[in-house]
């Protein structure tokens, strides 16, 4: 088991290195001009331009710059963000805190709702509830995340005035100083948006798996012994759907990250997703590279965690190591 984990960590490290090379080269050949996005509207002479290039080391060939960037990256130095005028690592750390809260909330939300709906679908198979849930999942799956966010915004903020339109804290109050209740109020809609988009996949998969369990011979035997459906669900079903559930939920980390970009854009939530869009639109190369690397690390972290949990949760794999 330990050997397997080491192998997957090694693979992840190798993949991360490749990701860093690929993204660096892609940004390198993109038409983004670092100096131009730095000086912005200000007019510079060719001389000043050359000076800036030398100052930043842009006169060196790309491979040399890559090695320098990667070496600094390993030391946790990702350069300075051009739009926020702060070290990239600080921008990421600060914004990731907000995004993490958002992602965690919606992750739990989609997990709980998806599991519940999936079980309901399997238990009341063929009923109106089953069909309604199916239609609901199909609709969720067929609509882009940002549109769901817009609908929620329309309903709860514009029409009902129940929840704030956006941001992570009341206007003029820094997030760190905002009251907890205010922060929660600002979190609800983005988290709901992100959570709802994850629900359909979980629901359909766990529903399918639970159906297989309820159709199995052991479930039939349990029923013949007089156990109720719900008892079978709790005693046999949950254990059997746990593995695919874990894989699916942790495997959704990549979509969660992408979804957070959309949800944060709709609700102008000042998290990492927002910074991603800003950095890419305004040509803030250091920040964008940093975020890309960070997101890849985040996804690999999710996959690794899935692997570990898998070995813990599955007795067949767990016992294998003891032999």
């Amino acid at each position: 088991m330990l050997k397997k984990l080491t192998a997957s960590v090694l693979k992840a490290v190798l993949l991360l290195v490749t990701v860093s090379i690929v993204t660096f080269s892609m940004v390198e050949i993109s038409p983004i001009d670092a100096v131009e996005s730095y000086v912005g509207e200000a007019a510079v002479t060719a001389e000043q331009r050359a000076q800036i290039e030398v100052y930043w080391g842009l006169d060196e060939p790309p491979p040399v710059r890559y090695v320098k960037w990667a070496a600094n990256l390993l030391r946790g130095d990702m350069g300075v963000s051009m739009i926020y005028r702060k070290p990239v690592i600080d921008v990421i750390a600060e914004r990731f805190q907000l995004s993490l809260v958002l992602m965690a909330a919606s992750w739990i939300l989609s997990g709980v709702i998806g599991l519940l709906l999936g079980i309901l679908m399997a238990v009341y198979r063929g009923s109106v509830a089953d069909k309604l849930i199916r239609v609901y999942c199909l609709a969720l799956e067929s609509s882009p995340a940002f549109w769901i966010g817009m609908l929620l915004l329309l309903l709860f903020s514009v029409k009902l005035h129940l929840l704030p339109m956006g941001l992570a804290s009341p206007v003029g109050v820094p997030v760190a100083e905002a009251a907890l209740s205010d922060r929660v109020r600002h979190l609800i809609l983005p988290a709901l948006t992100l959570g709802l988009t994850g629900v359909s996949k979980i629901t359909l998969q766990t529903g399918e798996k639970m159906r297989q369990v309820l159709d199995s011979d052991y479930a039939m035997f349990a029923r013949a012994r007089g156990e109720s459906v719900w008892r079978i669900v709790f005693r046999h079903g949950l254990r059997n759907i746990m593995l695919p559930f874990i894989t699916l939920q942790l495997g959704s980390v990549s979509e969660l990250f992408g979804g957070s970009v959309l949800a944060e854009t709709v609700f102008t939530y000042p998290g990492l997703g927002n910074a991603t869009v800003q950095s890419a639109l305004k040509g803030d190369i250091p920040l964008f590279l940093g975020i890309t690397m960070f997101s890849a690390l985040f996804v690999f972290g999710g996959n690794l965690l899935a692997n570990i949990l898998y070995t813990v949760a599955d007795p067949r794999i767990r016992e294998e190591g003891k032999k």
Binding site: S254, G258, S295, A296
Partner: peptide
């Protein structure tokens, strides 16, 4: 499989943004 893993290792949306800015 390695290439597929690489593609799936970066969040899809980030990859799309990356390619989009690469091509202007």
């Amino acid at each position: 499989n390695w290439v597929v893993d690489l593609f799936m290792g970066i969040p899809h949306l980030i990859l799309l943004i990356l390619i989009s800015i690469l091509l202007g």
